[in-house]
Each structure stands twice: as C-alpha cells, then as structure tokens.
C-alpha cells in the first residue's frame, strides 16, 4: 500500500529515512548519542536543530491529535526487559495497557495475535504469567508484543538483545527479522555490537558523538568500512573462531573529552589516521550513491603539505605553488 516515506532528521547531523520493510541500524559505543537519537525520534525529547518529519510533516507542527496518532504508529522496545515490564502486571495486562490508552476495542483478539506473533506458544499458557515467571528472552518477547499490539508502522529498538544470552539473542533476532518482512515494519535498531546489527539490518549508520560519520548498506559497511571509527567498531568484535587472527582495537579512552566543543573532526582525538586536516570538521562525501562518509581521508582537497594529491582529470594546474 506504499506508506509515505518517513524521513527523519534528528540530533545534529543525522539524516536518515526509515522505510517499510527495512531495518536501519545505528551503531556506536556507549555514550555516542544513540539513545538520544532514539528519544528524539520517538518524540520523547525535543529536536535540537533539524526536524523530524513523519508522513511528510514536521513533528514540530503536530497538534495533540497528530501526536496521538504518532504515538500509536511509532513504538519503542527498550534494552532491559527486566525493567521495562511492570512486575505486577500479567502478560495479558501488560499488552492490554497500550490498547486501553488508545481506546481500542476487541482487545482479546489483538492481544492473542500479538502474543502469537512473538512466538510465545501456546498463547493461553503465557497470558496469565507474571514477569518473574518468565526468562529474559520471554520478557523481551512480551515487550515486543506490547509494542506490536497497536500495529505500528515504525518500531524503534534500543539494544533489545544486549542483556540476553547469545542463544536467546539469535532467536529474538530471527523473529524480528521475519516480523519486519511480514508486517512491513520500518525498524530503527540501535546497538553497540555491529555483529547483531549485521544480522538484522539492511543498512547501517555509524554514530559518533551525535553525528553520523558513515552510512551504507550493511554488507558494504562490514566489507569495506571507510571511516576509521567504523573500522574500529568492526575490529573490536570478537570472532567465534580460535584460528581467526584479529588485532585488538587500537582505540583508547571513551567518546567524551569535550569533543562536542571542538571545531575539528569529533573523532580527531582518538583517530589512528589523524592528519592536520582533521582540525576542520569534515563534510560528508558520497563514495557510492548509498555509501556516505565524513572523513578527511576521502575529501578531495589536499589535506596537508605531505598529502599526495591525486590529479583530477581535466583540472588545470597553474604554475607551481
């Protein structure tokens, strides 16, 4: 039925569009601004510069009714299934809550469908359970059912599997992956672990201190990461193979150090490939139509005296320097 494109702009220099049936991953270390981005997109935080557009309209112009519709159509799944469910509510009550908030009827059927969708079977056995009677993976399934019961078109997921066992992670990821196809969901998936992002997402944006420094289709980003920060994130992932010879990350420290106030590249202080050019903030460059990176390694101007300049065809060089 072709829902409108949901283009979303938030935080500082983040541009991304969420499209039906597509999962978009956001990766970065803790403290990179991933969760703030999610809060802005969810309308929980106000936009600071830029705009979030939803169905073609900026959320800033929303009326109360628009917000109501937005809150129904855009759902969030949080990181910690141990905290996000009320310990006193049964599965049925927890999933009924959003329906009540939005005054939706025929609850019984909707609740059952939602529980069925997250593969908690037999459904009747789960409906009357309390969170403490469920495993971590089951709780996260309930959180997902709670988000799906309103039949949203957008799902924002904040590290939904990071607290779970890896065996459970695989279950939840493969379930999410089929739900995206089946329900034509637009998904934003936030994580520090690029290997789970690689499994679920079609495209990825790498975020550093509130800015997207690189974005590309997942396989391209994993195969040919351009930004030194993207490479660091990939290199740091342990490989389940004792013969693999992975080098440890060369990055030291954490993303903070007052980087936001700098005029230069935000990653400059930790970057292994730093040059004097990095004193200036890099502009995004398109390496491919769908692969964009903000890093001086890829800008065309000479980066400093020692940088080798590739002559651009047809460019006329005047008489020496």
């Amino acid at each position: 039925m072709g829902r409108d494109r949901k283009t979303v702009t938030a935080v500082d220099d983040v541009s991304l569009a969420l499209r039906p049936g597509i999962a978009h991953g956001i990766v970065g270390e803790s403290g990179c601004g991933k969760s703030s981005l999610l809060d802005v997109l969810a309308g929980l935080e106000s936009v600071d510069g830029g705009a979030v557009t939803y169905d073609g309209r900026p959320t800033a112009e929303f009326s109360r009714r628009d917000w109501m519709a937005f809150r129904r159509d855009v759902q969030i799944v949080f990181q910690n299934p141990f905290e996000s469910l009320d310990p006193k509510l049964t599965v049925r009550e927890a999933i009924a809550e959003p329906l009540a908030v939005h005054s939706i009827d025929d609850r019984h059927e909707r609740i059952e469908t939602a529980v069925e969708r997250v593969e908690l079977r037999p459904v009747e056995r789960y409906l009357e359970k309390l969170p403490h009677q469920l495993s971590g993976g089951e709780r996260q399934r309930v959180s997902i059912a709670r988000a799906l019961v309103l039949e949203p078109s957008v799902l924002l997921a904040d590290e939904p599997v990071s607290m779970l066992d890896v065996s459970t992670q695989a279950n939840i990821l493969s379930m999410l992956s089929s739900l995206i196809d089946e329900l034509d969901l637009s998904v934003l998936y936030v994580s520090h672990d690029i290997s789970t992002v690689g499994y679920l997402c079609d495209e990825v944006s790498v975020m550093y201190l509130g800015e997207v420094v690189e974005s590309a289709p997942t396989n391209r980003l994993l195969g040919e990461p351009a930004h030194p920060y993207s490479r660091a994130l990939i290199d740091a992932v342990p490989i389940p193979d004792p013969y693999a010879e992975r080098e440890r990350t060369a990055l030291v420290g954490t993303p903070d150090g007052g980087g936001r106030d700098r005029t230069g590249c935000l990653f400059g202080d930790r970057c292994p490939d730093r040059t004097p050019a990095c004193e200036r903030r890099p502009e995004p460059v398109a390496l491919e139509p769908t692969h964009r990176v903000s890093c001086h390694l890829y800008t065309e101007e000479p980066t400093d005296e020692t940088a080798v300049r590739t002559p651009v065809p047809g460019e006329h060089h005047g008489g020496g320097r």
Binding site: V166, S195, T196, Y199, T218, N219, L222, V237, I239, P240
Partner: peptide, 11 residues
C-alpha cells in the same frame, strides 16, 4: 552454541 553466534565476517 557455536552456530548461534553472529560473525561479522559473514553477516
């Protein structure tokens, strides 16, 4: 268990 782990080399 060995098969349950995502591997960045083979997303």
């Amino acid at each position: 268990l060995l098969g349950a782990f995502p591997d960045v080399r083979d997303p």
